[in-house]
Amino acid sequence: MGVNYFREHLEQAIEVPIAEAPLGGGVTLYNITVFGGAVPLITTSYAAFGRAQYAFTRDFKLFAGLRYTRDKKSIVQYNNFINGGALQSSTSKWDRLTYELGASYAFSPTLDGYLKYSTGFKGGGYSAGTLAPSFRPETNANYEAGLKGNFFNRALQANLATFYMKYDDLQVNQIVGVSSSVTNAAKATVYGVELETSLRLADALRIEWSGAYLNTSFDRFQTADSSRPTTCDPGTGVGNVPCSIDLSGNALPQSPKYTSSLGGYYDIPTSTGKVTLGARYDWKSRVYFTEFNLPISSQKSVGKLNLFLNYESDNGRLTGSLFVKNVTNEQVKGNVIVVSSIIGSLALGQYQPGRQVGMSVGYHF
Rank of each mutant, 00 (worst) to 15 (best):
V241R: 01
E208C: 12
Y265Q: 08
F289E: 05
R220K: 01
P269Y: 06
F221W: 04
D282F: 14
L252V: 02
T270G: 08
T216D: 00
S210Y: 00
G249M: 08
T223E: 07
R228I: 10
D233K: 09
S217C: 10
P256V: 14
T231M: 14
C232Q: 13
S271Q: 09
Y265I: 02
T231Q: 15
I245C: 01
S261H: 03
R220L: 11
G264P: 14
T259I: 09
S255E: 02
G264S: 15
L262Y: 00
T259N: 09
S301F: 10
P234A: 02
S227Y: 08
V302N: 05
R286M: 11
T276W: 06
R220E: 14
S301R: 12
I268Q: 10
S226V: 05
G235Y: 12
S244I: 09
S244G: 04
S271A: 09
S210E: 13
Y265E: 14
A251Y: 00
S210H: 03
A279S: 15
N215W: 01
G249A: 03
F289H: 08
G237L: 10
V241N: 07
D267V: 07
P253Q: 04
Y288W: 13
G273F: 05
R286I: 05
S248M: 03
T272R: 15
P229W: 09
G263K: 06
S217Y: 02
R286L: 13
T290G: 04
L247P: 00
T223L: 07
W209M: 03
S297I: 05
K300Q: 06
G273C: 12
G278Q: 04
F221N: 13
S301K: 07
P253I: 05
F221H: 13
S244W: 10
G235P: 08
G249Q: 03
V302H: 09
I296K: 05
K300V: 09
R228V: 12
S298G: 06
V287W: 00
W209H: 14
E291R: 09
I296S: 15
